[in-house]
């Protein structure tokens, strides 16, 4: 079986979920490059999307062919940790710009430092690189990241209802971005929590779980980011 066939077989077994994620990310990247204003927040989001997209391509296009399935799965967990880090930095930068509550902003700055320290410890200590234990910690980091993203989303929604609603909600890029990340975070936390158990006890459900609880929500997040770019406004509005 050549490399291409091996990759197609893997994608097929996973309901092409990774391909769906990559396609929607690519659409978001292209839309962002065309329509996003060249401010810091847009650059952060584009950098995060491009980084995520490249990692998917490298993972499935190249690395899958050189690693055993188990090692590959653990390696994906490692790259997911790097994506989580980039994701949290991009979204926290964005949240710090749109949330008015000083206490929430202070808390986000602290959480950002805490998360960076966790990532640094995780990477520097190795924690048994490409082992199952490594994958568990990586998933835990994913859960922490998503949990850190939920409270600012709630604060944003609260402030949205509290402040004067001058701009139409559908024309606000920030509404689409926060709704996307909120949906993705809430739906994907259970997936991160049960992923290893499903893989161990009910491996045949793993692919459908991953599709429903991870790939579709993150694709919806990419669609909402695309919509935010299409608003042709500064993303923090």
């Amino acid at each position: 079986m050549d490399r291409f066939e091996k990759m197609i077989k893997l994608l097929d077994s996973r309901y092409y979920s990774d391909l769906i994620v990559a396609v929607f990310e690519l659409i978001a990247i292209i839309t962002g490059l065309i329509y996003a204003r060249k401010d810091k927040t847009s650059v952060f989001f584009l950098a995060y999307l491009i980084f995520d997209f490249l990692i998917i391509i490298v993972d499935y296009g190249i690395l899958y062919c050189y690693f055993s399935e188990k090692e590959f799965s653990n390696f994906v967990c490692f790259t997911n940790t790097l994506i989580s880090f980039a994701e949290l930095l991009a979204y926290y930068h964005f949240f710090l710009k749109i949330i008015h509550s000083k206490n929430t902003n202070k808390l986000m700055k602290i959480l950002r430092v805490v998360f960076s320290v966790i990532i640094a410890i995780f990477i520097t200590t190795g924690y048994g690189f490409l082992t199952n234990r490594f994958a568990y910690v990586s998933l835990l980091i994913g859960v922490i990241e998503l949990l850190f993203l939920v409270p600012p989303s709630f604060v944003y929604f609260y402030e949205l209802l509290k402040n004067e609603p001058i701009i139409d909600l559908y024309k606000r890029p920030s509404f689409w971005i926060v709704t996307g990340i909120f949906f993705y975070s809430v739906v994907s936390i259970p997936d991160y929590l049960i992923e290893r158990s499903v893989a161990y006890y009910k491996p045949k459900y793993w692919n459908i779980t991953n599709l429903l609880l991870f790939s579709i929500p993150i694709s919806i997040n990419s669609i909402f980011l695309t919509k935010a770019f299409l608003c042709k406004k500064t993303l923090t509005i």
Partner: peptide
């Protein structure tokens, strides 16, 4: 369970949009 979770989130967003529109 998954459908319920997604529906709950969709309902939350719909309520948000409704309240915002009402306030607007």
């Amino acid at each position: 369970i998954v459908s319920a979770l997604i529906l709950a989130l969709a309902a939350f967003i719909a309520i948000m949009v409704y309240l915002y529109r009402k306030k607007q």
